[in-house]
Design a protein around this nucleic acid. Sequence first.
DNA 1: TGATAATAGTTAGATATCGAACTATAATAA
DNA 2: TTATTATAGTTCGATATCTAACTATTATCA
Lengths: 141, 141
Amino acid sequence: MKKNNALYLISRIREAANKFIVQELEANGLKGVVPSHGDILVVLYGCDKCTMKELAQKIHRTKATLTVLVDKLIALKLIEKEKSPQDNRVTYIRLTPLGQSYKGIFEKISDELNNKLFKGFSDDETKNLVELLQKTRANIE
Amino acid sequence: MKKNNALYLISRIREAANKFIVQELEANGLKGVVPSHGDILVVLYGCDKCTMKELAQKIHRTKATLTVLVDKLIALKLIEKEKSPQDNRVTYIRLTPLGQSYKGIFEKISDELNNKLFKGFSDDETKNLVELLQKTRANIE
DNA sequence: TGATAATAGTTAGATATCGAACTATAATAA
DNA sequence: TTATTATAGTTCGATATCTAACTATTATCA
């Protein structure tokens, strides 16, 4: 634990970054939205529609968790459900116009967060960090 | 989000590491113990006793959360509470002999985790990663 | 001293999260 | 075709986590 505190630092960074995201979302009118909700919306900004299963995989949460998260985003009128005509088991999720309208906000927050996190980093340092993190991830996942 | 996925990698690493910890704890007889519980025990391996407030700060959780976590560890007979004679508001937490007995297990799991995470890393790479993470943390916290 | 403020810890209510069990539908095999 | 198996999604029960409100005790200040 003392010998190498990389994991401790990783936890602190992640927690602080999540806090930043939640604060910024609230400051931009999205109160009660947590990073996982944001992950869902960001996935949907990159594709027209998405099944529950695909969404769960992409945000690295179980289907059970996703059900709860999706219910909340529906209550906030940011996304909506739609039954697949081909396969009645499948539910598609897509953004509402309101959900679409927040795309710019999410891009802005993402940029601000990255600027903040890596302020003062040279291009080499950023590249180096990402490579080392990729290597770490490959070791553990 | 695409420009720089360092934070994404950080989340994945943290999640995988936590999973590893939970699995190893269970394999060593500590079923239902999550990393936060482990954090409490690890703090207590480094000091004789600790107040609730100090513990909460050290594991980076609120006092309310700590109350729940401590209750569980007491139920597992790994720690115990003790009222301060000087100040009746204060509660000390200390390890039971059973809790003490797991010290070696925690050290072993910590070592194994670090070996796994940073397998194939040169000393320079490890040092470099930690420095970059420290810099990142300083930027965001 | 007596009132007010500060501090330690718990409780209450909400929510994200998970695994396991469940329902409903589709695909496959006998 | 019918039975079995696989898949998509939800529900249930448990728990970690937070904020806000609360209780109890100690410290401060007028």
